[in-house]
Amino acid sequence: MANQTTQNVVVMRHGDRIDNFEPLWTEKADRPWDPPLILDGKVRAFCTGKKLSNNLGFPIHRVFVSPFLRCLQTASEVIHALCAVGDCSNVMSSADGVDIDPSKLKASVEYGLCEMLNKRAIRAENAPKDGNFAFNISECEAVLPQGIVDSSVERVYKEMPKWEESSEAARNRYQSIIKTLADKYPNENLLLVTHGEGVGVSVIAHAAEHLTVYEVEYCAYSKLQRTIKENKSDTTEEFKLTGHTGVLTMPTSPTADEMVKEPPPASS
C-alpha cells in the first residue's frame, strides 16, 4: 500500500475594499477597477491571518494571490501574521511593525485567481475601455513582504482572462485553478487569496451536500483537504470541504441553480 499524506488548501476572499465605503473614490481613480483596502480591511486581513496561524492545525507553505490590489494587500497582511516572529497578539496590522521570518512560506501572483471579469463583478463604467487591466507582475510582487516572492514559479495563466468572460467560465476557472495549483505542489499546504466568487465556488464544488452560496464576507475562507498517495500509479483522492468561515450557505436540491448566486456589481 502506498504511503499517504494529506494536503490542505485554504481559499480566502480579500478584505474591505475602499470603493464600497467611499463611492466617489472611483471618479478620481486612475485604475477604478482596482481599489485598495481601507484600513479596516487591512486589520481584518491581519487578524484573519492570526486566526489561521493559531487555529488551522497545519502550516501554510505557499501562497498564491490574485493580481488585484485588494487581494495583494490582503495577502501581505495575512503573510505578516503567518510569518510573524515573536508575540503579535496585540498587533492589529503590519503597520504596527511586525518582524517576519520569510523562510516560513513563499508567495506568487497567479492570474487565474483574478476577479470574475464581467459586468456582474466589475461595473462597466469602471472597467478598462480596451479590456486591458494592465497588471505588471513586478509591481504586484512589490506589494508582498520582502523576501517572500518565489520568482521561480511559472504561472498557470500566462495572461489575464479576456474581458468579458461569462460567469460560468469564471466559475470553471476558479474550480480548475484550485486543482491545478494543488497538483503542482501536492506536498505543500496552500493559501489562495482571491475574490468572493472563488471562495463560493470552492465551497460548492467540494461540499458533501448540494449547497447554494448566498454571501461571502470579507476575508471569508474555506478549508479543503485531500489524501495524497506517494505512488503515482494510485489515484489521489478528490478534495473535500472540511469547513468554512464567513460563507452563508443553504442546502439545495441538485438543480441548475446549484451555484454561487450572482453578486451585486462591484461586490467581489
Rank of each mutant, 00 (worst) to 15 (best):
N54L: 13
R120D: 15
S94Q: 12
G97M: 06
C114M: 08
G49F: 03
P67G: 00
L117M: 14
G41Q: 07
L105I: 09
L105C: 14
L117R: 15
A95P: 01
I60F: 09
P128M: 11
L37W: 03
N132D: 15
A134Y: 01
L56M: 11
G131D: 09
V91W: 01
F46G: 00
P67T: 05
A84D: 08
I122R: 00
R123H: 10
R120I: 09
R62K: 15
N132R: 12
N136E: 04
R123Y: 01
S103E: 13
K106L: 07
S66R: 05
L52W: 07
L117G: 03
V98G: 00
K42I: 07
E125Y: 11
I137Y: 00
K119M: 08
T74W: 03
E125A: 13
N55W: 02
S76H: 02
N136L: 02
I38M: 13
Y111S: 04
V98I: 15
T74F: 04
G97T: 08
E110M: 09
V65T: 15
N55L: 11
H61I: 06
K119H: 13
A81D: 03
V109R: 01
C88A: 02
K50P: 04
H61N: 15
K129D: 09
P128C: 09
C114Q: 02
G49L: 05
L52K: 04
L56K: 11
K106W: 01
K104A: 13
V65S: 05
V78P: 01
L39F: 10
G112N: 08
N54K: 15
D40M: 12
V63H: 06
L37H: 06
L72F: 06
G86I: 11
I100S: 03
V43F: 04
C47T: 13
V78S: 01
R120Y: 14
C114G: 04
I38N: 07
K50M: 11
S66G: 08
I100G: 03
P67R: 06
C83A: 15
V63Y: 06
L72D: 02
P67S: 10
M116W: 10
F64W: 10
D40S: 14
V109D: 03
I79W: 02
R62C: 06
A81R: 05
D96T: 02
P128I: 12
Q73D: 02
R62V: 07
E125S: 15
C83V: 10
L82T: 01
T74A: 05
V78H: 03
G41L: 00
